[in-house]
């Protein structure tokens, strides 16, 4: 059964793109969750709708149109929080609402599209093309380079931004890079799990990892591992039971989160007894 499942080209591409997107989102999510910016993925995924609508209207590539649109929106979120001193969650809410409204406005101007918008809302990992696989791989390489080279800047800025500034770390540049990579990740991940479920990839594996790990590096490893496991199990189950892949991946992620929670509780109870 498994060898048959893996023999299809679309399954191989889907698994590869899904694994890459899941690892990217999980690693980024660790920093976003700790910086209490985890809903940025949700907000930016709504902006994807503007990118999708604009791309369909222009007849251009969804990814290439959506990436600059979502990046510009993420810069808008940073500007709202830094310049206008609006709370991060409120800034995300404003940009999210604007992205959704503009997307629907463009759709209405175009008189609706023939394309199945449902696919973009909830994802379809098994329709991923080779160019998207390559883009995911390139983004993962960029992200890994950023994390390895700027590891201490990232940890310091996430732990205590004002103090990091007094160590000469350019906290603004760190945040900006993190936000721009998140924008690109959101666009690439929307093909895998869909616009409405992207934030789950960014939030659930890191939250589960935080329950299992004791050090920062362990959290990164656990988050990536859990995300990979969820994608592989999710794609396999969706193939076997003929159910939507995006939703299945998220449900597997939730099961892993529940397991991490139970393990954490048992561990704490055992530690208390000792």
């Amino acid at each position: 059964m498994i060898s048959e499942f893996l023999s299809y080209g679309f399954v191989q591409r889907g698994l590869l793109a899904g694994s890459l997107a899941a690892v990217i989102c999980a690693l980024l999510g660790v920093f976003l969750v700790l910086k209490r910016l985890s809903l940025i993925g949700d907000g930016l995924s709504h902006v994807c709708l503007t990118g999708v609508a604009a791309a369909l209207l222009m007849g251009a590539s969804l990814v290439y149109v959506s990436i600059p649109v979502v990046m510009a929106s993420s810069l808008g979120i940073l500007k709202l929080t830094e310049k206008f001193r609006i709370y991060g969650d409120a800034a995300i809410g404003i940009i999210s609402a604007a992205g959704l409204a503009v997307g629907l406005f463009i759709t209405s101007l175009a008189g609706g599209f023939n394309t199945d918008l449902f696919g973009y809302l909830f994802g379809s990992i098994l329709t991923v093309g080779m160019d998207e696989v390559i883009l995911c791989a390139v983004l993962l390489v960029i992200l890994l380079f950023f994390i390895i080279v700027f590891y201490r800047d990232l940890v310091s800025a996430s732990f205590d931004a004002p103090f990091a500034h007094t160590r000469g770390i350019n906290v603004r540049a760190v945040n900006l890079t993190l936000t721009l990579i998140t924008s690109a990740a959101v666009v690439l991940a929307f093909k895998v799990v869909g616009i409405f479920l992207i934030s789950a990839l960014l939030i659930i594996p890191p939250v589960a990892a935080l329950m299992l790990a004791r050090t920062f590096k362990q959290v990164l490893y656990w988050a990536a591992g859990l995300a990979l496991a969820a994608v592989w199990a999710g794609v396999y189950l969706s193939f076997v039971f003929d159910i939507p892949s995006g939703a299945t991946i998220i449900l597997v992620n939730l099961c892993l989160l529940a397991c991490a929670y139970v393990y954490n509780r048992l561990k704490n109870a055992y530690a208390c007894k000792e």
Binding site: L34, V155, D160, A161, R167, A213, F216, V219
Partner: peptide, 22 residues
């Protein structure tokens, strides 16, 4: 600073790693 910005958070970091940041 007056208050630790991470006082309420579950940031996974050891005491020696925190001091090392300095």
């Amino acid at each position: 600073a007056q208050k630790s910005p991470v006082a309420q958070s579950r940031f996974p970091i050891s005491v020696e790693e925190v001091v090392f940041m300095g």
